[in-house]
Design a protein around this nucleic acid. Structure first.
Length: 254
DNA sequence: ATGGCTACGATCCGTAGA
């Protein structure tokens, strides 16, 4: 089974890139973030034509998550249970005996801001929920834009980013707490080349300079991690005309 | 010099992203 996650930064704008990419990468499940699309305007026909069923939870302008899969999703749930949030950031679905959770973590804007506090509270609620979810679903995959670069090697210029939002210690701690409930960073299960990132700023020719962050992640429970045979980031779509600022992340489960 | 894109929904700029 091939799992993927991609922050598309507008499903409407990126639909051609998405259909092209899934046609050649052929993920069985792909989690999308920042769809920025109301459910009533979800491009259901195009997604179906590409060979995918879909579950989605969107809103106008901001946020929005979707899970596309070759199999019909069951047990679809939106949001973190008990955590009231207007922002559509969390979507879960089951495929066979595998539970897939699609996440779009808050950006956090700046350390110390209200949005940063919201980000840390969101992570707290997420962790509590996932701790239960992993007991219910031993085959648990958590994919998405987590908006945290877990280590300095996930940052192009750790000195410049030191203490900033996405790399601050409380955010990294929140990320590590997800691992502590029994999840593994699929990317780090394997030897990887240096300076691999999943996001590059649109400005400053950041992509050309490979000035990026690795903030999009696939976390796997032990049962799935034991069967994970590959994990990589595909930079190719970032090179296209009018790209998303994020690249898709892939993991193969035997 | 802390900018520099991009998407959105609103107008011809503000908000947000990371």
């Amino acid at each position: 089974m091939r799992l993927a996650t991609w922050n598309v930064n507008s499903l409407k704008v990126r639909l051609p890139h998405l259909t092209e990419w899934v046609a050649h990468a052929k993920p069985d499940v792909i989690c999308l973030q920042e769809t920025k699309t109301e459910d009533a305007k979800f491009p259901g026909a195009e997604v179906e034509a590409a060979g995918y069923r879909a579950a989605y939870a969107g809103q106008k302008t901001y946020n929005g998550v979707a899970i596309l899969a070759t199999q019909q999703p069951t047990g679809v749930s939106v949001g973190i249970p008990g955590h009231d949030d207007e922002q559509k950031r969390v979507l879960a679905a089951t495929f066979g005996n595998t539970r897939v959770i699609c996440l779009y973590a808050p950006n956090g804007q700046a350390v110390g801001s209200d949005k940063y506090d919201y980000k840390l509270r969101w992570y707290g609620a997420l962790r509590a929920w996932l701790a239960e979810e992993i007991k219910r679903h031993p085959r648990l995959a958590v994919l998405g834009d987590l908006n945290v670069a877990p280590e300095d090697r996930d940052v192009h210029d750790p000195k410049a980013w030191e203490g900033q939002v996405h790399v601050s210690e409380p955010e990294r701690q929140a990320f590590r707490l997800l691992l502590e409930i029994g999840l593994k960073d699929a990317f780090r299960l394997f030897e990887q080349p240096e300076k691999i990132y999943s996001w590059w700023d649109y400005r400053m020719m950041a992509f050309r300079r490979n000035a990026g962050l690795r903030i999009d992640h696939i976390l796997l429970s032990d049962a799935l991690a034991a069967r994970c045979i590959a994990c990589s980031i595909d930079k190719a779509p970032r090179k296209l005309e009018r790209p998303s600022d994020h690249a898709p992340v892939l993991a193969d489960i035997d």
